[in-house]
Design a protein around this nucleic acid. Structure first.
Length: 303
RNA sequence: GCCGGGGUGGUGUAGCUGGUGCGCACGGAACUCUGAAAAAGUUCAAGAUCCGGUUCGAUUCCGGGCCCCGGCA
């Protein structure tokens, strides 16, 4: 049996928002017989298109895309669901003998998928969370210390959300299990799109203005009409948060644009913090570099 | 025009009695990451007193200027 069949190479294309991941992924997919698996925590939702910078049908140029529009914005989608669905998509693509291209900006999702962090099998208990939410961080920390001393040692003492999650797990399992990883048994090539700060800011601005022209505000209005609360829109962050505030007359349109620009820039920065840690990522400047690396990667696997 | 309130960093603000005012938020930098990850959280740096006077010392007292807000005319 030829080794490349067993080996099942995977390509990851990541980078900050507005860096041009989607279009690069399509180009690579066309050249190397690939299909795209999106890794974006907002593009999974139906009806959230312009605000998330989701690729359009036309831009896909016939390349199949997975993990887009797989959830209703009314319900919360989580990493665990992402991982499950993405793994399925991965197998499907392998079965066709094609190259899976994981493309997106949500570092946590990418990590969950390729490194397989094993998340304790305790689904969110919103009732419990609401109850715990009323306590102070100090109280929560003391509570966790009593329940699971070990986890209390390593947790961030002031992070309420994490404390609550830890307690939630303890209540179901008795303790927080140690962190385990279950990485994919396939070779992975990770490419990151590198952009100068200044250039990225420009790209963000250009894209932001374009999306507003294309009807981003109407999109948010439509979501509201379909029953998504202001609170939920606020939760989605960035575009949805600020457009919602604008629609509620809390801020002017100019303010909305300026705030959004800043927030998106900050978001891009946070994404980079996440990516920087991963030393496997090869940072590239353009399509040509990407193609060369992919070609070498695939060749190696066959020899 | 008069009365009252206020003017503090790149921006918005907090500050008791005159004692070396530098807090909070935004913005800047770095970072963390176990079912919300565009989430949540942490750390760091820098940065201001309208002009003059009184005083050993003024954000705080006095005088002057300009500006803003509210009320009256």
């Amino acid at each position: 049996m030829r080794r490349n069949i067993i080996q099942k190479p995977i390509l990851v294309i990541l980078g900050p928002t507005a860096s041009g991941k989607s279009s690069l992924a399509v180009k690579i997919a066309k050249k190397f017989n690939g299909e795209v698996i999106s890794a974006d925590s907002r593009q999974v939702y139906k009806g959230m298109n312009l605000g998330t910078g989701k690729i359009t049908k036309k831009e896909m140029e016939g390349i199949p895309h997975h993990l887009l529009d797989v959830a209703s914005p009314k319900r919360k989608f989580t990493v665990v669901q992402y991982r499950k669905l993405a793994l399925k998509a991965l197998e499907k693509i392998f079965k066709k003998g094609k190259l899976p291209i994981i493309c997106g900006g949500t570092g946590f999702y990418i990590q969950a998928l390729i490194d397989g962090i094993t998340i304790p099998p305790v689904p969110p208990d919103w009732k419990l969370r609401r109850k715990l939410e009323k306590k102070s961080v100090e109280e929560l920390y003391e509570l966790l210390k009593k329940l699971d001393k070990k986890r209390a040692e390593t947790i961030e003492k002031k992070n309420k959300r994490r404390l609550i999650r830890a307690i939630e797990i303890v209540q179901k399992l008795g303790k927080v299990p140690p962190l385990k990883k279950d990485p994919l048994p396939y070779p992975v090539l990770m490419l990151g799109i590198k952009k100068e700060k200044k250039e990225l800011k420009k790209l963000i601005r250009k894209r932001l203005l374009k999306r507003i022209r294309q009807g981003m505000i109407a999109e948010v209005k439509k979501l509201k009409k379909s029953g998504i609360s202001w609170k939920r829109l606020e939760e989605f962050g960035l575009e949805y948060r600020w457009v919602a505030r604008y629609l509620q007359n809390k801020i002017s349109k100019e303010e909305m644009i300026e705030k959004l620009q800043k927030e998106i820039e900050n978001y891009a920065k946070r994404q980079m913090v996440w990516f920087k840690k991963d030393k496997r990522i090869i940072w590239i400047k353009n399509q040509r570099e990407a193609e060369k690396l992919v070609r070498n990667f695939l060749k190696k696997k066959e020899s």
